[in-house]
Design a protein around this nucleic acid. Structure first.
Lengths: 340, 340
DNA sequence: CGTTAGCACTCATTGTCGTCGAGTGCTAAT
DNA sequence: ATTAGCACTCGACGACAATGAGTGCTAACG
């Protein structure tokens, strides 16, 4: 499709543009050591590349900038990824060297590392909890009419809710109810929990205690709402240093998107595993139409554990980011995947 | 100090400026219905007010804008606060009408309400935990070498940590340790907990079980780190709509401040109770030197429960905000103060 | 004597115009 | 096939005048 020389020139242009954020002209490409052609030759090739849709011209007398198609080709065929800086690598390793027991902490750390090393915004999605099962359920009375409900999963995740207890429910009732729930439901996968609760256990529970729907409701809610807390953003303000965001309006729409966790979640769920690159308008959401989103799902033994991603301007350092994501996703798989 | 007419004019100028964000001239003040003087008279008074330090002139041929001193006088003597919109009031009440049991939820809601109603940024600090005491402590084994430690306070607050268990610690050891901790420490105020743990209980525990420092350490950490989660921000991007933040650099320094929870916390702790207004450079932090921070500490029976605050440009609607804070702080005191 | 009309003055803003230069496309020479 | 040369395009930038909102001051007014 493209001649060797065209690929070389396209590569040079995109590299330059990523660094400078300004339209690159034929002369500057010619002056680079690696392309041994005169500006005129480069110009001809550039015109061709523009005809083919790989480059664009902001206005007649300006240099060229890569089009979406150009970036796409660059990412698919040109960029050499995996070239992780030695220093960055040691930063990562030393960060993760600290003993960290909580998966939340690991995820948060990963997000921070990514945004620090790239100066872009990082988004990290923790392990899904579909496969988890109930480990422990407990009610701790706080006062005469309220208690704390605590749910622990087999992965060590804890959710809690404060609930108010109907006045006509005695201490004994509660104890009995909790006992029943524990004996019947421990080990049940969370996805099944809902149905199991209301059929099997609901009946039996109802026989002993009235007004137990509330208990079931709380349990249910605590488990489904958990999703919200799986996502961590870091370096959200890094974007503001990028010249493409010198306009406050763009900044606002982007930051508003960051506040909408559900929308972000949707962008991340059901991504195919491995490294995915979404360039510019390939992203559905308008707020990031001049951004690229690179994601990496990490998994252990075929089971998806989560996703980490970097959001940057379309003009981002694809090679570096992809390399970093590869390293970090495998590291996280190791950290999170080992059975506790 | 100021004549009645000067106060009137100062008031009019600040009102206008708050609305328009642009230097206000003598003509526009004169044309308002409430001041029955000609532009020339207004001009004379304005010159006086400038001499007195209440007004400033961006440049010779522009209108006047309030100085810090001007705002201060306005807030202290001129603004009529407490005029809460009927509609806003019903919004607040309907929001809080939902049964909310978790104090976290209440706090988060309050932050949201505030930022929505004002279009500024709200900062809400939840109840301090100094006065809380330990209600329940529990270890739930997750695997052979790890467990979840759960700490519940008398207010229903839950903290949890995953810890790894030394291999030479048996199930029985753990159970014994937890039992000791529970019998000895329940009801102890959190502030005392640290010392009590290491003296009294540490000895006794050590007699039964080795390697229990780790347990104590976790308990300790879980209780001290709790502070971090007491603060909620809402409407951080609202500031971007303010004309004083059309410069991306200013936006960045502000947003970076928002990410620094500890710094924010420091600004909020040890505030005198009641409504406090910090105008412009009265704030120590440079990032908000062109902002005003209005805070209200709410308390029940003399015991401080927390603080809510609004951060806006110096040119903010003081009357409205102060009114809202008064209503909301008393509402929150009611909600959080009632014993559970 | 307080108030106001009138007027000269200031100065940011806006728009126009010419210059500059980076960059292109095309043609002709190598 | 490559490249040197050249005319052309067009945004960026600075100079400059016009505009107008707003002021300070003085003198007139009730």
């Amino acid at each position: 499709m493209l001649t060797e020389r065209q690929r070389m020139i396209l590569n040079a242009i995109i590299d330059d543009y990523i660094r400078s954020a300004e339209p690159v002209g034929s002369r500057s490409i010619s002056k680079r050591g690696d392309v041994g052609y005169s500006p005129a030759t480069i110009r001809n090739e550039m015109a061709d590349l523009e005809d083919l849709g790989f480059l664009e011209q902001p206005h007649t007398s300006a240099g060229r900038i890569p089009s979406i198609k150009g970036y796409r080709y660059y990412v698919d065929h040109l960029v050499k990824h995996g070239e992780v800086n030695e220093q960055d690598l040691s930063t990562i390793r030393s960060y993760f060297a600290d003993k960290m027991n909580q998966s939340e902490q690991i995820i948060q750390h990963a997000a921070m590392i990514l945004s620090n090393l790239t100066n872009y915004t990082s988004i990290v999605l923790g392990p899904e909890t579909f496969s988890n099962s109930l480990k422990h359920f407990q009610l701790i009375p706080i006062s005469s009419d309220s208690a704390v409900a605590i749910v622990v999963t087999n992965t060590g995740h804890v959710e809690n809710r404060t609930i108010s207890i109907p006045t006509d429910m005695s201490m004994g009732d509660i104890e009995r109810a909790v006992n029943i729930l524990n004996t019947k439901l421990i080990g049940v996968p969370l996805v099944r929990l809902k149905s199991r609760m209301h059929t099997e256990v609901g009946e039996e529970l109802g026989r002993y205690v009235d007004k137990c729907e509330m208990l079931l409701g709380v349990l249910d809610e605590a488990l489904t709402s958990e999703d919200e807390n799986r996502m961590f953003l870091s370096g959200t303000t890094n974007m503001l240093t990028q010249p493409e965001f010198k306009d406050v309006d763009k900044v606002k729409t982007l930051l508003d998107l960051f506040d909408e966790t559900p929308t972000l979640m949707r962008m991340f769920t059901s991504l195919p595993s491995g490294i995915q690159v979404r360039i510019g308008t390939e992203n559905t959401h308008v707020a990031i139409n001049n951004c690229s989103l690179i994601t990496a799902s990490y998994s252990v033994e075929g089971q998806s554990l989560g996703t980490i991603g970097i959001l940057g301007p379309t003009r981002m350092d694809y090679g570096k980011v992809i390399g970093l994501l590869e390293v970090l996703s495998s590291d996280m798989a190791k950290l999170l995947g080992r059975p506790k």
